[in-house]
């Protein structure tokens, strides 16, 4: 390299960003070395270190808390992304399945606790609507309640065999219950 270095070359040499060929030239060129020395002096004069601003501890704490929250968020995001794609629907399905199971079992349990008058009554023709082995006023009440509800009427509830399930059947059971009670006080 025979030409002298430009100001830009020298400036880049000053900060270690110059091409090695420039460094070699300056090392062997007194004029460029002088110019570099002057540039270094000027750069020192131009340098204005940033003012030291005291940062209050609460400001540090607030920003560091933000940093930790963001780190937690990032970790969570990555964890979600790491789950196999084909499994992702499963993660959504599991809570739904759990909810469905709970609803199912609760419904089942309620059904088991419901009066037997709501179930098909094979033994109801005898007046034993709740099939507890005896005919009493409870059977009459259950049948009366069933008539008021919208549930379909079981033909076996037809106590007087008139082809209808109605209040007369309730009365018949009630009458039978009272008679039985009289006979077996």
């Amino acid at each position: 390299m025979t030409e002298h270095s430009t100001e830009l070359d020298l400036e880049l040499l000053r900060t270690g960003e110059a091409d090695p060929a420039i460094a070699r030239h300056v090392a062997g060129c007194a004029q460029c070395r002088d110019r570099l020395a002057r540039l270094e002096r000027d750069a020192r004069a131009l340098a204005m270190p940033l003012a030291a601003i005291e940062v209050p501890a609460e400001c540090d704490r607030a920003i560091l808390a933000l940093a930790r929250r963001r780190a937690g968020f990032v970790a969570e995001q990555l964890e979600r992304r790491r789950r196999p794609r084909w499994l992702r629907p499963l993660y959504a399905a599991v809570p739904l399945a759990a909810a469905a199971s709970i609803i199912f079992f609760v419904t089942l349990q309620r059904g088991a606790q419901a009066p037997q008058a709501t179930a098909p009554l094979a033994a109801a023709a005898t007046g034993d609507i709740n099939r507890d082995g005896r005919v009493d006023i409870v059977d009459a009440l259950l049948l009366a309640r069933a008539l008021k509800s919208d549930q379909p009427h079981d033909p076996a509830w037809d106590q007087n065999r008139d082809g209808r399930v109605d209040q007369a059947d309730v009365d018949r059971i009630a009458q039978a219950a009272v008679s039985l009670q009289r006979r077996h006080p």
């Binding site: 003012a51 030291a52 601003i53 560091l64 930790r68 780190a71 969570e76």
Partner: peptide
Amino acid sequence: RANQGDAAAFEELYRRHRDWVVGLAWR
């Protein structure tokens, strides 16, 4: 590391550049 959710890396980034950022902002 910060891209992996490392809280210590987040904090170190802040500590390293805090004074420079606030000094520049003051300017």
